[in-house]
Nucleic acid binder design. Sequence first.
DNA 1: TATGAATGAGCGTTCATTCAT
DNA 2: TATGAATGAACGCTCATTCAT
Lengths: 182, 182, 182, 182
Amino acid sequence: MRADARDNRERILTAAEQVFGRSTAASTDDVAKLAGVGIATVFRHFPTKVELLEAVLTLRLQRLRDTARELAGAGDPGTAFYEFFSQVVAEAGSKLAIAEALGAAGSAPGEHARQAGLEMRQAFGELLARAQRSGAVRADAQFAEVYALLVGASRGATATGLDLEVRDRMLAVLYDGLRPRR
Amino acid sequence: MRADARDNRERILTAAEQVFGRSTAASTDDVAKLAGVGIATVFRHFPTKVELLEAVLTLRLQRLRDTARELAGAGDPGTAFYEFFSQVVAEAGSKLAIAEALGAAGSAPGEHARQAGLEMRQAFGELLARAQRSGAVRADAQFAEVYALLVGASRGATATGLDLEVRDRMLAVLYDGLRPRR
Amino acid sequence: MRADARDNRERILTAAEQVFGRSTAASTDDVAKLAGVGIATVFRHFPTKVELLEAVLTLRLQRLRDTARELAGAGDPGTAFYEFFSQVVAEAGSKLAIAEALGAAGSAPGEHARQAGLEMRQAFGELLARAQRSGAVRADAQFAEVYALLVGASRGATATGLDLEVRDRMLAVLYDGLRPRR
Amino acid sequence: MRADARDNRERILTAAEQVFGRSTAASTDDVAKLAGVGIATVFRHFPTKVELLEAVLTLRLQRLRDTARELAGAGDPGTAFYEFFSQVVAEAGSKLAIAEALGAAGSAPGEHARQAGLEMRQAFGELLARAQRSGAVRADAQFAEVYALLVGASRGATATGLDLEVRDRMLAVLYDGLRPRR
DNA sequence: TATGAATGAGCGTTCATTCAT
DNA sequence: TATGAATGAACGCTCATTCAT
């Protein structure tokens, strides 16, 4: 039965990610319906709606953290940094609420999410530091504003629709600003 | 009696701007209370909650449009452009939901808001065009990505808290990206 | 409209008295249905279920207090005391939950009910004191145990069904205990 | 395996007595947790919650019956009667819900409980008859009102808090009523 | 026209009971 | 047989909207 339960937990999380991706105001019932389980099952796995939201958020932040760590482990520092940046913005564009997750990473939504947010920010900070040391990102840029740009670009990409060319041109401008001044 | 009605409309709109600025999830009752009118009066002026939200949005977009037009009418084109950009981001930081309004300007929230959004974007486009002609903004940047950057910067400033220094450094990076390449 | 509202409030209270008289575990919906109003109307008048229960309780305690005061104002002290005692027990028998109200009178169910309970107990205390002074009730009985007997008799009458003759014989035994020893 | 099952049954009953003694509104889950078994095990032994409640009630009534029988078998009839009366009231005060059990004994809660209630009442009737024959209780008191007084005193003791001195004085008054008139 | 009372659909959550292991 | 997961009906409560004054 543990296998069943784990299965259901996964399905609920997946459903929640989709549903809350569309709108944070969605109801727990919607999640249950999409997951194909009864509503009480959702509450068995996540005792309150807030905890469910937090679990989704945590998952996203962990995925981002993992991606950052993978990229940090290998390859050219500059490529790794810009690659991660673009990837985050791209996913935000298609998944809508990931940007909200990024924004929430700094605030206070429960211990797990806070921890995951912290780790993600640390991994991104590492990426940035290495890119700066290698000369791919201007040395005078501090973490705070680079992170703000990451969040902003994600939201900007989401908000204005998903034209891929526009998004790439937006990033091109942004990256020009991030590269060292000659 | 028409003066009375217009008065009430104003007060409701002002109250709504404040209330929804704090939280989009606020209730219509809260608006009525802050405006000092009965709830039925709110619904007489704005038959649905969506229409009330739209009216607030429209108001904000019109203000932005007016600001853009004023700046376009006088002074150095580059200064006008960057001034407007900074001002929008600053207000987004303090008023929280204006970014949502900006984002929504492109989508489909009723005729009035769409119209106001269009006019605001045209006024901002004018500002951009003049700044490009004067050499203050790179010529190869198209409206779409610059607008996306405006929206993104507003949201980024809102999401990550309102540290003024960080916000300014973020904008400095962004403006470096927007200036012509040497 | 105030007349309408007051009317509804009355009807809700009456319905609640009946419904909760049968079972404290009854739902707020049941009250609304019996009162013939929508459920939101119940909550408009009594913001929480506890407040509704408290209002019913307060009403009952006030009625009891008024009865005690009326009886204290006129007639033979002994008659007044035993009359009140019998009346309370009789009503408890027919209305079931009034005994619970009596029991709760000493505990802590909100300010209004506590106040009403206090006043009722004071009025009953007055009745007792006068009866003792007149020699109709033994002088060595203290308020606490007499009140406990009142509560107990009410509950006993309720619990064992409502046979009137049994109830009267039960009270006769009890009154024999309360009268001065020869 | 039958020994296991009987063991579990006992533990569940013990847990249920404790849990429902504290609050009738307690959940079946609470019982299972305190008993240290899964919830399904509770339902295997007691197919519905009502049946579980009835089993607890039956147990209590049987204990009362046994006490009455023991007291009837030996010693002074008057002492036995008043001893039993006081003991029931004392336990009601400390165990809260036993009064409800007593009250329910007359009503219609399933065959087992009805039978146990009947037997308890018969044993108490025996106690009463012997006390009356010995002159310790007035001869004109009939079973019905004496039983009502037992129930009432139990509830009264429970409801008004458990001050031991008050309880004893209350019983003293009551016993004065029950003793033969000189 | 302005008001506040009334409404019911919907929300988050709990719980007795059933099912699958 | 014992378990814990799954279920859906029900609860207390809120809110956008309508009605009656």
